[in-house]
Design a protein around this nucleic acid. Structure first.
Lengths: 216, 216, 216, 216
DNA sequence: GATGAATGAGCGTTCATTCAT
DNA sequence: TATGAATGAACGCTCATTCAT
């Protein structure tokens, strides 16, 4: 560790600690993460961590908020420009894949924690995950509405599509790790093609249905 | 616990222990799970757990194998019967949603563990997850091939679709928890309609592409 | 430590732990006492202490209850026999001085703790101290009543005398430490002579009053 | 805290620190007291405490000396005027009860510390307590001598009476807390009546003795 | 003179694991 | 076969104390 950096102002130190913690929590999960390691990675002693963040739990919450904010902002910025919804959704998904590729730790922190953590942590994680789904869902909803398909909203409600997209994107983030030549844009494009076209078909009334079970 | 059951044959005891462990690991995650609780839930004393399974780690591996086998079998059985691929995929997805609804613990055990566990555990989890992806991928591949689209395999390779489907299904399993009126079949159907129809479109050459960036 | 004693039954171990803890708490006070030292003195490892008593605080409470019960019983037994009150009081005080001489730790534990401990501990200590005062007070009250002095009860109410006696006895327990030739009986006798005779005088109406301040 | 007061002369600052420390030590006891709290209560930063007093231990010693001096002076001043001994003793006791009522912290600091502190602290506390006993003892001794009872000094030596008085007074200070209508003077008067009259009786040869145990 | 920033060392507590029966 | 009893090794957290400014 670079122990020559000393006497940093409070706000800087705090950010450094949160960034170090993010890495450690993401790599090991909440329970297996050890505060000593976080301190060492941040280049300070353990009491500093407690002086600044108070407890392991509060430190974790700070990490979740940091990750959630960063991701939401990245997605929203990418999807904000005023084009038609499907272009914006594509931009958002591209931003998402960029994000998970470049800030893998943040995504892992948000989506790969063991269940049954403390209430404070569970609430914070749920809020962060809901925030992502809300962003995606809003974009999808606008796309559906612009498709003029209010009557069939039950068939492809935006929430369902948002879960599908986010889940698929999560899984594809792993897939990307094994395909280093793929760009986030290309992955987003392929995902768009499957989900978006499929959704359009459904909105247009083209439905696949299983054959009725043979009469017995 | 029913402490009157004693002197059970080895295989029965072992299965009971693994089932108890599965619940505890799924609820708390590997690190937060406590062997005492597993022993109590299994109705035996802690040394028995060690006598039968050797260590917490080996016990966890046994749980992963149990869950993986159960899920794979359920999926394969559902998708095995000799109909056309898309019907089999739908049956497989239905079986999957049935499985996650009824054996939530097993699915959680396989997909919600904190990262960076020991090598033995990581390997086992990776194998289990790969196994599910392989099942789905095989089905998708057959569907694509039957669609006679060998030439365009790069555009929608089965592996990509399998990741998309499994990730979406994972996320939708959560979505189902908030929509108790949905049946696994209906969810599987909606997912099929989006992914499958979209994929067919793509195979048929209908591609969505972003507009070229405006010339500057 | 005698590490050859092993596998003791639960109740025996528990008593040994409490006895060891009593010594350590009495010697160092609650905060400065270290659980490791208690464990070592009890001849076991630290986790045993927690397995049996749960926490440092609960361990302390157990010690207080043990000391309080022992002292109360010793005093009550000595003062129980059916003679006249002053004889019983003398016997009780003798028993008290015997107790503090022989179980110095217990007395110190009850009366020399730093203030502002946790509520649980404070309550337990208060109860233990009140218990001693109640024993003494009951004896004094009977003596006063037998003295037939109901009307003047305000002047020498039993509670006041009980506090006086217990406080004096506490202080004299220290004094005894510097006078090893004194027996508990002799100390009790001298204390009786001062307090009891003085009280009788007061009951008999013989009051000392300060002279009025000189007119200015 | 009034942070506008700055650059105080050394002696003033030091007294402020000691007074703050006295309160904190009295409320929590030596071990549970935290230097941060003392600094905050004194309205300065922690390094100042160390600059002025050197260490927690030296700070505590300073508090003990301060409390001891204050109490001794109060007692001596009250008991100094040239009347007969019993009047002076009564005045001294009154002053004592005034003191514990008004400077409760100081009395608690001197008499309610957990045992087995460091040698430096133990010595200082012992000295302070001895100082109080010496004051009381001197007064009692003069009273006894004036009673012309040198021959029977063994029966009621002043040291014994001093311990009795101080212990009783300590205990009665607690009793006063539950009787807010009592004045220090009245409590002192009642204590005088019991101890002093009893002592006079003893000096006059009136002794209570237990009946001989029945011949067996 | 005064302080914000920083840490070494220690304590309460827990848990996977094993021994003696 | 089965278990009550026991522990080594960590980990979260705190506090007296000291630099660097």
């Amino acid at each position: 560790m670079d122990r020559t950096r000393k006497r940093l102002p409070r706000s800087v130190r705090e950010r450094e600690i949160v960034e170090a913690a993010l890495r450690v929590f993401a790599r090991h999960g909440y329970h297996a993460a050890v505060v000593d390691e976080i301190a060492e990675l941040a280049g300070i002693s353990k009491p500093m961590v407690y002086l600044y963040l108070g407890s392991k739990e509060r430190l974790f919450v700070a990490c979740v908020q940091h990750a959630s904010r960063t991701l939401t902002v990245a997605f929203r910025d990418a999807a904000a420009s005023g084009d038609e919804p499907e272009l914006r959704l594509w931009r958002g998904l591209s931003a998402f894949f960029h994000f998970v590729a470049e800030h893998r730790d943040s995504w892992v922190l948000l989506h790969r924690q063991a269940p049954e953590l403390s209430a404070a942590i569970t609430d914070e994680l749920a809020a962060a995950r809901a925030s992502v789904l809300a962003e995606v869902g809003a974009l999808v909803r606008r796309g559906i509405e612009e498709g003029g398909a209010d009557a069939r909203l039950g068939a492809v409600d935006a929430d369902f599509v948002a879960h599908t997209l986010v889940g698929a994107a999560d899984s594809l983030a792993d897939w990307m790790a094994g395909h280093p030549d793929e760009t986030p844009e290309r992955v987003a494009l392929r995902l768009m093609n499957m989900i978006w076209l499929g959704m359009r078909d459904v909105l247009d009334g083209e439905l696949w249905t299983p054959p009725p079970p043979p009469a017995e």
